[in-house]
Design a protein around this nucleic acid. Structure first.
Length: 570
RNA sequence: GGGCCUGUAGCUCAAUUGGUUAGAGCAGAGCGCUCAUAACGCUUUGGUUGGGGGUUCGAGUCCCUCCGGGCCUACCA
């Protein structure tokens, strides 16, 4: 039995995520976790909320709540929505947990002890009106280069020139509009990534089977300009992990916190500690310490492309730099973006479908199927309501759902609600079994390789094979001449439903459960050979005709949703 | 500006890494079936692989160039 540690990029706390966020990390991670569990492997699947940073503070202020309270509430909201999508996290943690505080401070100490942290004195814009230091992009003004009036402090959106906030003409805070900005001297800690460039590069170069999206982004950062740059890992904020050297104070760093991108990946580890604390497990080190049992763990991370630099360079620099035997990631599966109907999903403009809204209008399986079967693997993908409607209606309602209906209802009318006895398999059945054998193995291959769209296509092909068989065998015709033979055909058809339930579970957990319930079986072992997998339900086994698995999306519904999600979120 | 990704049938995507006649699904057309959610199956129309040039016995695949789309560019996360 293999052991799989699986993490999804942790979603930021400041609101409900849209479908693009979902398909870029949590959903494919869940697919992989469910598949590996289905194969009988030991899986630890972790996710959490990423709770620190300026946007969290601002979102809390906007909601009129203390930031800790706001984050606690939003964590609950995201947690419930994750359950709604059937995301099967073994634990859904919080980057603000005490475990993460301790571990983040521990890593900082170890890195400092090994000479990998240096102090840098720099100047930073401070806004007395806002009472806070402002990240560059929270300052706007007129671009000195092109005269664009809403240029951000880090870059002008009009001429794309990179800027320094002090260059802006008439700079002001985008939070309050305040113009009384001043430069203040402040000290920060930098992680000396540059000192680890060769080690990181050798490690990346050894990963020849990673998606090009992952390695090309990593290499770009390694070799761009002067090479890998040191990175500031502290910020002047209130909300975050206080800068400490382990348990000890860090002189000169009073009142500062670690930068979210330093503490967020560490939460992957802290989350396993939370998992133990919550009573769901008893040994987190078995998953994370190679000196304490994690040597045989395969660790896979899932994320959108915007997260790649932090997972290929920043976090590995932390892990490797510590010199401690932490488990390093084995495979990084990254995704492009999902666009919405000709443009981008927009949280600020309420454009597109958000996770809570999606569940209000349709069950999770509909979304899981469309999103995964259209996952943005090779390039950005696009959600359109027409495509969604036709894909879901055809694949789920017609091909899979109707298959279940036609065979169960036919059996009920001719043989009653139990698996009929009699007859034997002939050439047609042998051919189907051989075909399915090959298709199942191909499906497994795509799942192992995390080729999500190909896996979906292969699964659909397995469903189609059942319809082809029924059409050719035509038990409704056979029945008139040779009821025994029809019984064998129906028996095979009913067994196909159970097989489909097992194979489809990673994509469609709810429909899978309904099929198993209808077949009144809890035999969910992954199929070894197709032949024995198709004789699990024996003659005389009782079943019930399941309710319709997937009702179709009507044109009226589609048009209504199209209008509802085009503009501003309520 | 620089870098990376991408462009294949009306739509969404494949193509064993340079190897026969570029394949699937959806949509369209025709036929069959009547168990089933007006479902299913079979057959079929549809391509100058964004344009141009080059390398090669052979190019969707490699090189050059032009055009279009997207992302990243280190203080949003």
């Amino acid at each position: 039995m293999a052991r799989h540690l699986i993490t999804s990029a942790i979603p930021y706390i400041n609101g409900i995520k849209h479908l693009g966020n979902l398909v870029g990390s949590q959903l494919p991670a869940d697919l992989f976790a469910r598949y590996q569990r289905g194969r009988g492997h030991e899986v630890l699947f972790l996710c959490a909320t990423d709770e620190h940073g300026t946007p969290a503070e601002l979102a809390a202020a906007k909601a009129g709540k203390p930031v800790a309270e706001y984050c606690a509430e939003m964590h609950e909201v995201q947690s419930r929505i994750a359950e709604g999508f059937r995301l099967s996290f073994d634990h859904f943690g919080r980057s603000s947990s005490p475990q993460n505080h301790r571990l983040t401070q521990h890593f900082a100490k170890v890195l400092a002890d090994r000479g990998l942290i240096r102090e840098v004195s720099e100047t930073q814009m401070y806004s007395p009106t806002d009472g806070r230091y402002l990240p560059d992009r929270y300052i706007e003004g007129t671009c000195p280069n092109c005269g664009f009036e809403s240029a951000r402090g880090d870059q002008c959106d009009n001429c794309t020139k990179q800027l320094d906030p002090v260059d802006l003409i008439n700079p002001h805070s985008t939070i309050s509009g305040a113009t009384d900005l001043e430069m203040r001297e402040t000290k920060h800690l930098y992680l000396r990534q540059s000192a680890m460039k060769d080690e990181l590069e050798a490690w990346i170069d050894s990963k020849t089977d990673w998606p090009v999206l992952t390695t090309s982004i990593a290499k770009k950062w390694l070799n761009d300009g002067d090479g890998l740059q040191d990175r500031g890992i502290t910020r002047d904020l209130d909300w975050g992990v206080p800068v400490q050297r382990g348990d000890e104070p860090w002189p000169g760093m009073e009142g500062k916190v670690f930068y979210v991108w330093f503490d967020a990946p560490i939460e992957y580890i802290a989350c396993a500690q939370e998992w133990v604390e919550a009573g769901k497990g008893d040994d987190w080190e078995r998953w994370w310490r190679t000196d304490k049992g994690a040597g045989d763990v395969t660790y896979t991370q899932f994320m959108g492309k915007d997260n790649v630099p932090f997972h290929t360079l920043g976090f590995p620099a932390t892990i490797l730099g510590s010199g401690e035997p932490w488990k390093l990631v084995d495979y990084i599966k990254s995704f492009n973006y999902l666009n919405y109907d000709g443009g981008q999903f927009s949280t600020s403009r309420g454009r597109g479908v958000f996770m809570d809204q999606a569940l209000e209008i349709l069950p999770a399986d509909y979304w899981r199927w469309w999103l995964l079967s259209h996952a943005p693997e090779s390039s950005d993908a696009e959600f359109t309501w027409e495509n969604f409607q036709s894909s879901v209606n055809k694949d789920l309602a017609d091909v899979l759902g109707n298959f279940v209906s036609r065979i169960t209802k036919f059996c009920r009318s001719k043989f009653g609600e139990e698996v009929p006895a009699g007859g034997s398999f002939g050439e047609r059945e042998t051919a189907l079994i051989a075909d399915l054998e090959a298709r199942i193995r191909a499906y497994e291959g795509h799942m192992e390789a995390m080729e999500v769209r190909k896996a979906a296509a292969a699964l659909r092909g397995i469903w189609v094979a059942g319809n082809e068989y029924l059409q050719a065998a035509a038990p409704w015709a056979t029945f008139k001449e040779d009821p025994e033979q029809a019984a064998a055909q129906v028996r095979l058809g009913l067994n196909l439903i159970r097989l489909y339930a097992v194979l489809s579970a990673p994509f469609l957990p709810d429909a899978s459960a309904k099929m198993l319930e209808g077949m009144q079986t809890d035999a969910t072992d992954w199929p070894g050979d197709a032949e024995s997998a198709l004789s699990v339900l024996e003659p005389g086994h009782a079943f019930t005709v399941p309710e319709v698995l997937f009702s179709k999306i009507t044109d009226d519904q589609r048009e209504e949703w199209q209008g509802r999600f085009a503009g501003v979120r309520e």
